[in-house]
């Protein structure tokens, strides 16, 4: 009876281990479209491979123990000495720690530092994104490179960004809704603000995610390196329209981008 249960359980455990690894070996991440994203993917893939191996090993061992020791009526090993306990525990713990801590120190934090601690290059295209329930308001500085003044006190249905009509710097600003147009291979600096609640600026293909927090102005940058349209999703619960707060990042060649800007200014 115990032998049969042990065998069945062991088979299920082995199947689970094999199943996890088979599923994990598939490609899950959306196709990559940014420069720093390669580092994030390397981090995820390293952890996937390492933990996949450990999961497989763990399930094989667990299944083996369950099967083997369900077959004996008397125990064959009773109490380990403290030294043996320490050795086995520490060996495995250090292996796991090496994977976890080693991974984050060697692969992870350099990428993290590049994403968050490094100032954006001078040629970065600066875009203001102001989130509100449930839309992305996008603003470009225009040819003068200066954003016009904006003040929450001027918020209204017609003036969603609270722009100051008397400020000359603001006259050539380009304002757009839910569409962000950028140039391929040129760094993009996003200046993120929120008008009401928390939102999350999530570009899954570009491995970009940043919460927008009311009362804060958060700058971050990335380099899109593929042309095309990429969806922008909200990744922080923001209310009943959270699920339909969709934007699009359009990555264009420099020529296309110039044309788009001109059209936008004239139209």
């Amino acid at each position: 009876m115990e032998r049969r249960s042990g065998l069945i359980l062991a088979i299920v455990i082995w199947l689970i281990g094999a199943g996890v690894v088979m599923m994990g070996a598939r490609t899950w991440l959306p196709p990559l479209a940014s420069e720093h994203g390669a580092g994030i993917d390397a981090m995820i893939n390293f952890t996937m491979t390492a933990t996949g191996g450990l999961i497989l090993l763990g399930h094989i061992v667990l299944g083996l123990f369950v099967w083997k020791f369900s077959r004996q009526d008397k125990i064959t090993f009773r109490l380990a000495g403290p030294r043996m306990e320490r050795r086995w525990s520490l060996a495995v713990a250090l292996l796991v720690a090496a994977i976890a801590e080693g991974g984050v120190l060697v692969i992870g934090l350099p990428v993290w530092a590049k994403v968050y601690d490094t100032a954006s290059p001078a040629n970065a295209l600066i875009i203001e994104v102001t989130t509100e329930q449930f839309a992305w308001n996008v603003r470009y500085a225009g040819p003068d490179g200066v954003f016009g003044r904006a003040d929450p006190k001027r918020y209204s249905l017609d003036n969603v960004l609270g722009q100051d009509p008397d400020d000359p710097a603001g006259r050539d600003d380009i304002v757009d809704l839910n569409m962000i147009h950028v140039e391929v291979n040129r760094p993009v600096l996003i200046r993120l603000r929120s008008k009401d609640v928390l939102h999350g600026f999530f570009l899954p293909h570009l491995r970009v995610k940043q919460d927008s927090v009311p009362g804060m102005k958060i700058d971050f940058w990335f380099v899109p390196n593929k042309t095309g349209s990429f969806e922008l999703a909200c990744a922080e619960l923001c209310g009943l329209g959270h699920y339909e707060m969709r934007g699009v990042l359009v990555v264009m060649t420099p020529d296309e981008f110039r044309k788009w800007k001109e059209e936008k200014r004239n139209g």
Binding site: L29, I40, M43, G103, W112, F202
Partner: peptide, 11 residues
């Protein structure tokens, strides 16, 4: 727990 992979996986 790894800040770098959490950028993609958070929420």
């Amino acid at each position: 727990g790894n800040a770098t992979s959490d950028i993609q996986l958070h929420d």
